[in-house]
């Protein structure tokens, strides 16, 4: 509990006086469904913020508010200190949406030309090609490209306007390792130039590779935020599996055990640290076999953080 609280109160970097994008106590509901329930979120120049959360956690709604696609029911939303719909603010942003969207029947160079025309100081076509890895694709029709190539084109469209703030919504879905790493390199280059990035992703390694800060959303609330290592440390728990006759309810009472469930003859335990629990398991059940100890994944982190949230 303490950790969580501490994480949540993690102070923002004090260096950037005005955030590029900001949600303050943002509320948004669709009918009876609460999508965002008082979310605070900031993106500053030169930092990558990863937004994590299960489907329906409110990630898309948060991005939608900052892009001005949606109106908040309550709270404040600003983009460069302006209302998010303001054209001059949007001219400072680049967007790569999760559901893609590009005129399939246009060629890549036409898409680039059109998108560049929206911006006052666009990057040169060559620069876009190099950054996004579009070599040899310019004359191809978008709808004739592979999924990975299309994703790279979308990335090029996002950065072609020389944005100071980049929204990347699951940018590497469908990319192979090599392309993914190229994209990461490009993002790092942009950040080095002072660009702020808001990233959503399913890949912990991606968040890990890029993020300065991670914000975890669940059911419309920020349940954790901090650096990647802080989050990782928080989810340092272990998953223990074995074939054992011990009752799950009994094991759950042991100190350091967070969860215990039975699946047939297998017992599955989540523990803060593995060693004391394993020692006690072996003591309690001499017939125990097939023992496994796993490090928790990002999914476990979500589950855990959100489970605690629920409990609290």
């Amino acid at each position: 509990m303490d950790t969580i609280t501490q994480l949540r109160n993690d102070p923002r970097p004090a260096s950037a006086p005005v955030p590029l994008a900001q949600l303050q106590a943002a509320h948004k509901r669709y009918g009876k469904v609460i999508a965002l329930d008082g979310v605070d979120l900031e993106v500053h120049a030169g930092e990558v913020v990863s937004l994590l959360g299960a489907n329906g956690a409110g990630k898309s709604t948060a991005i939608g508010l900052m892009l001005g696609l949606l109106q908040a029911d309550a709270g404040a939303v600003t983009l460069f200190g302006r209302p998010p719909g303001a054209l001059d603010a949007r001219r400072q942003t680049g967007v790569m949406l999760q559901d893609g969207g590009a005129h399939g029947d246009l060629k890549v160079h036409e898409l680039l030309a059109l998108t560049r025309s929206y911006y006052p100081r666009p990057r040169s076509i060559d620069e876009c090609v190099t950054l996004a890895g579009l070599e040899g694709l310019l004359q191809r029709r978008y709808d004739k490209l592979s999924g990975g190539q299309q994703r790279r084109v979308q990335f090029a469209l996002a950065l072609c306007g020389r944005p100071r703030l980049l929204f990347l919504d699951e940018p590497t879905t469908g990319l192979d390792i090599q392309a993914r790493q190229q994209l990461w390199r490009a993002v790092r280059e942009l950040v080095a130039e002072g660009c702020g990035v808001l990233l959503t992703t399913h890949y912990l390694e991606e968040a890990e590779a890029l993020s300065d800060r991670v914000v975890v959303l669940d059911r419309g609330r920020v349940v954790a935020q901090g650096s990647v290592s802080q989050i990782r440390a928080h989810v340092g728990q272990r998953r223990i599996r074995c074939v054992s006759a011990l009752a799950a309810a009994q094991v759950l009472c042991w100190p350091g055990v967070r969860a215990a469930t039975r699946d047939g003859d297998r017992l599955e335990i989540v523990a803060e640290t593995a060693e004391p629990v394993v020692r006690r398991l072996l003591d309690a059940d001499p017939l125990l076999q097939d023992l496994e100890v796993l490090r928790a994944g990002l999914a476990d982190a979500f589950i855990q953080i959100t489970a605690e949230e629920e409990a609290a």
Binding site: P17, V18, P19, L20, Q22, A76, T78, F80, G81, R82, D88, R91, Q92, A113, L114, S117, Y118, Y119, P120, R121
Partner: peptide
């Protein structure tokens, strides 16, 4: 609300008529 961030001049003076043409 925080003060707005200053933008380069060309952001305001940028005439986007060209994008109407391209769009069409």
């Amino acid at each position: 609300m925080d003060a707005a961030i200053e933008f380069p001049v060309e952001t305001h003076s940028f005439q986007s008529w060209r994008c109407y043409l391209l769009e069409a």
